[in-house]
């Protein structure tokens, strides 16, 4: 998959992701929505709720999470069912469901364009939509896909052609948040600055193809590095979306 000059098709480096695009609040009727695109792959995610769950589905202790994945065309099949279940398990770890007992949180994922790394794109779209909906969460999360070529080279964020040619494909999601670290500066010793931290443990791991333990470890590490980049982008996108609110805070009248 990697050519003689160390570049992939379309001139990307093995550890280079496609350009990311995130748009939030794209749907007017949903409580939270986001569109996430990685060049050829694009996904629209909508969050509805928390709202009253049906009598049969409600849980007296926590919110019930339901995920619907809709393919770009045709009817949802086993692949979509699998993605729904993986996303649901991911969300159960991340959402503070005990805050809203007896309710239902519905997440709808619509694939707009499919060109590889779809599960990772869907994970990122759902994360952005949940942030937009303002549901209580333990942390933000990011997902990245990587593929091993037949010759064992690792490429991050493969497109459809690379995925088809790959011997194995790994998708992993990691929680990402900012912790406060003490800065040992000269001016003030108590100044704490936020620093991005990604725990070692993944929230979701999906493997396809033949894979050895050392390959899995290096693939996970590759995904984790990719997630770091995605997390930085998400933090920047969030800050930009609150720009007018930040101006207000510097206003002396407030």
């Amino acid at each position: 998959m990697v050519g003689q000059d160390g570049h992939r098709a379309k001139g990307r480096l093995p550890s280079q992701m496609r350009p990311l695009l995130c748009e939030r609040s794209v749907l007017s009727r949903a409580d939270g929505s986001a569109k996430w695109a990685q060049e050829g792959s694009a996904v629209l995610a909508a969050v509805h709720g928390p709202h009253q769950a049906g009598q049969r589905r409600e849980d007296a202790e926590r919110a019930v999470i339901e995920v619907l994945v809709k393919p770009r065309n045709g009817l949802a099949g086993p692949a979509e069912r699998e993605a729904e279940e993986m996303l649901r398990q991911l969300l159960e770890q991340v959402l503070l469901t005990a805050h809203h007992p007896r309710t239902l949180i519905l997440v709808v994922v619509q694939v707009l364009q499919a060109d590889g790394s779809l599960l990772a794109v869907a994970i990122n779209a759902v994360a952005a939509a949940l942030a937009d909906a303002g549901l209580p969460m333990r942390s933000m999360f990011a997902g990245v896909c990587c593929a091993f070529g037949a010759d064992g080279t690792l490429v991050i964020d493969p497109d459809a052609a690379e995925e088809a040619a790959a011997g194995s494909v790994i998708t992993a999601a990691f929680p990402c948040s900012h912790t406060l670290t003490q800065q040992h500066g000269s001016s003030s010793s108590s100044a704490a600055v936020p620093a991005l931290s990604l725990p070692e443990a993944s929230l979701l791991l999906h493997c396809k193809g033949r894979l050895g333990a050392p390959q899995l470890a290096s693939g996970l590490e590759g995904c984790r590095r990719g997630c770091q980049g995605v997390a930085k982008f998400v933090a920047l996108a969030l800050t930009n979306s609150f720009k007018d609110a930040m101006v207000k805070s510097s206003d002396p009248a407030v």
């Binding site: 333990r138 942390s139 948040s177 406060l180 600055v193």
Partner: peptide, 20 residues
């Protein structure tokens, strides 16, 4: 504590520490 005052007026995401 006055450690968190640096983050007042800043944007945070879920899971971000605001103050020790």
């Amino acid at each position: 504590g006055d450690q968190g005052c640096g983050l007042v007026g800043k944007v945070v995401a879920p899971g971000d520490a605001v103050q020790a």
